Computed example of a mutant assay.
Amino acid sequence: MRGSVPRGAGGRRPGARTAGLPPWVFVPAAVAATLVALPVLGMLARVPWDRLPGLLTTDSALAALGLSLRTSVAATAIVVVLGAPLALVLARTRLPGLRVVRTLVLLPLVLPPVVSGLALLATLGRRGLLGARLEALGVDIAFSTAAVVLAQAFVSLPFLVLSLEGAVRTAGGRYEQVAATLGARPTTVLRRVSLPLLLPALGSGTALAFARSLGEFGATLTFAGSLEGVTRTLPLEIYLQRETDPEAALALSVLLVAVAVVVVLATHRTRR
């Protein structure tokens, strides 16, 4: 019949936005979305918006924000430089012991942050496995800005490795094999073929690592302490303000939420 729209299997129009899900699936999906959204909305409802600019521009808030941004950028750079090669090795090689390495690398995902901080302190603290030897050489890491960077890198590294390793496995190696057949050296193949293919995954993994570094609390507090201007990052400042000035803590929390939203949107856009 003229003007009729062709239908696919089941009488649905081609291209219709449906996955053929049973109706009951939407009930737990709505509950899950509410479970995440409701606390955030509750926090936003209690923020003193009229005092927000003043609360965000205090000396302690600006110092904590600046320190968080600097250390998060440094930690993310370390994660990218070290994590990208590690993800390639885990995805493309068959060396013995890689399963153990992968397990250890992903361990910070499930460890409580305080345990991660204790592990770093037991290794790099003044009486730690390596810290005592480093102190003899005049290098003191624990309870310094460097400790903040290491704590952030420790907990955020798995995010980049997991994201990039999955992308490498999904992409396969056919393009690299063709380039190698044409005589390209391994470094050239990596630079001209592999990295351009993996840029979206690298971008999303980098954004996730930065967001995780910016929000790190437990490992930083345990390994680096809370010294204003030295190790007191924005999450630590929020924790301290929660006891003395709850409104300031809410204002600083809104700032972290805004950064997280930007990172999530950027990650989703990069993956698309």
Rank of each mutant, 00 (worst) to 15 (best):
E165M: 14
T181M: 12
A171S: 13
V254Q: 03
G229P: 06
L240Y: 06
L236I: 04
V264T: 14
V168S: 04
T181I: 07
V168P: 03
T181Y: 10
T244L: 11
A201I: 01
A219P: 05
S163Q: 13
D245L: 05
I238R: 06
L182E: 03
L221Q: 10
G173M: 10
A219D: 05
T170M: 11
F223L: 00
S226R: 09
V254N: 01
A249R: 05
V263F: 06
V230G: 00
R169S: 14
A201W: 02
R232Y: 05
G183D: 11
V161W: 08
D245N: 14
V259Q: 01
L240G: 11
S156E: 00
A179T: 07
T206V: 05
T220D: 08
T233R: 07
L190Y: 12
G205R: 05
Y239K: 03
P200V: 02
L195G: 01
R174K: 11
V259Y: 01
L198D: 06
A167G: 12
F223G: 01
Y175P: 00
V262F: 00
E243G: 11
L227M: 13
G173R: 15
L160D: 01
L236K: 05
F210S: 03
G229C: 07
T181F: 08
R174H: 13
T188L: 13
E216D: 07
G203T: 15
L227W: 04
G205M: 03
T244R: 15
P196Q: 12
R212K: 12
L208A: 10
T170I: 04
E237N: 07
Y175N: 09
S156W: 07
G218I: 13
E237K: 08
L197A: 11
G229Q: 08
Q177H: 14
L198C: 08
V262T: 09
G215S: 14
G183S: 12
V261K: 02
T206E: 05
Q177S: 15
L234I: 04
L197W: 05
F217R: 08
Y175F: 10
A219T: 06
L164D: 09
T170S: 13
V257P: 01
G173I: 06
T231N: 09
A171K: 08
P235Q: 12
E237Y: 02
V230K: 13
L252Y: 04
V155N: 06
L162P: 03
R232L: 06
L157R: 03
V262P: 01
V257W: 07
L160I: 06
G205W: 00
G172D: 10
E243I: 01
R185C: 03
L250K: 10
V178G: 03
V193K: 12
A251G: 05
G183Y: 07
Q177Y: 12
L199A: 11
Y239W: 13
A219W: 03
E247M: 11
G203N: 06
R232T: 14
A249Y: 07
S226Y: 02
L199Q: 09
L256D: 01
T187L: 13
R169I: 13
G205D: 08
V261F: 12
E165G: 06
V161R: 09
P186F: 10
V161S: 02
G203C: 08
L240H: 10
L221D: 02
L202C: 02
A180T: 12
T233W: 08
E165Y: 11
G229L: 03
V230T: 15
E176F: 11
P235I: 04
A260C: 13
L236C: 04
G205A: 04
R169Q: 15
S163R: 11
L198V: 07
Q177W: 15
